[in-house]
């Protein structure tokens, strides 16, 4: 009895430790990120960093302006969302309201598979199929554009948006729809006049999480969007995103140089952007539950 109690005590303490450890770990690490990045902002003004138009991290004199990358990230994300949100909402409605049981299972499995494809694979696929296609169909000098990136990232964000929207649609009380149908509405009318409004917070949250996924995506954009650090004017020119800048340049930086710290600073900006998006989506979702 004593031994068993002792054993239990040890195990429970171990569980407690691993719980605390992993949480501490995670928090400490973000403190670390801040520490590395903030030393950069002592030298360079935050406002100048964000609004600077030129990114020449290793020329003399060096210039750290990430406006082109911020705009690049925004442009690709905007395009992806315009492409993915309507399709995903349509798909979510079809899966939860229209599709018969068997087809529903198959489609859900298919969408889960879509979510599982590594981004380097999607990048490669986009590079050898979509990029030449965009170039030839639209008669552009290069197919490595924000537009191509948007389509590929739109595809990537669809599983997230579809599955969370579908949950939201399923959570709408059946009585709402039945009420509409009883009043003589068709299935379609019940959907776009009643169900969609009830599920709206969930759908908005789903779209925001989709945006979060797109902004943070690295490999596919790095391979498809052309990586030109200039301020974009249209969808059909090469852009460079925040994430691609970090991944592409970190390998070449000298440890402890301004360039090294500037990439951590970009990391902080990116972290803050995604954090705000995720927190907001979380709040929208939770308000719905109340």
């Amino acid at each position: 009895m004593r031994i068993r109690l002792f054993k239990e005590f040890i195990i429970e303490k171990l569980i407690f430790l691993s719980g605390i450890a992993s949480i501490l770990f995670v928090i400490l690490i973000f403190v670390f990120l801040l520490k590395e990045g903030l030393s950069f902002f002592k030298e360079i003004n935050l406002f100048k960093f964000i609004s600077g138009k030129h990114w020449y991290p290793i020329s003399e004199p060096e210039q750290f302006g990430i406006l082109p990358m911020i705009l690049g990230s925004l442009l690709v994300t905007l395009g992806a969302i315009i492409f993915a949100v309507p399709l995903s909402i349509g798909a979510a409605f079809y899966i939860s309201e229209v599709a018969p049981g068997k087809i529903k299972d198959i489609l859900k499995a298919g969408i889960e598979m879509l979510a599982a494809i590594p981004s380097v694979v999607l990048g490669f696929i986009g590079m050898i199929t979509l990029v030449p296609l965009v170039k030839n169909v639209l008669h552009l000098p290069t197919g490595l554009t924000a537009f191509s990136g948007s389509i590929m990232l739109g595809l990537m964000s669809m599983p997230t948006i579809i599955s969370i929207s579908e949950d939201a649609i399923n959570a709408v009380p059946k009585s709402y729809k039945e009420g509409a149908l009883a009043l003589g509405a068709t299935r379609w009318q019940a959907m776009y006049r009643v169900t969609i409004y009830a599920a709206l917070p969930g759908i908005i949250a789903a779209s925001m999480l989709g945006i979060g996924r797109v902004i943070g995506e690295t490999m596919a954009v790095m391979m498809i969007t052309g990586n030109a650090a200039v301020i974009p004017h249209t969808f059909f020119q090469p852009v460079r995103t925040l994430t691609a800048t970090i991944a592409a340049e970190m390998g070449e930086t000298v440890y402890g140089s301004m360039h090294y710290y500037s990439l951590f600073a970009i990391g902080i900006i990116l972290f803050i952007i995604t954090f705000i998006i995720n927190i907001t989506a979380d709040m929208v979702l939770h308000r719905k539950h109340k």
Binding site: R213, G216, T243, I246, A247, M250, T274, N278
Partner: peptide, 21 residues
């Protein structure tokens, strides 16, 4: 809340952490 958010942090940021730490 933090753990839920960390699951949504871009993977490249974990790369920065790995590099620094």
């Amino acid at each position: 809340i933090n753990i839920a958010n960390l699951a949504g942090v871009p993977s490249v940021i974990y790369g920065l952490l790995g590099l620094g730490l």
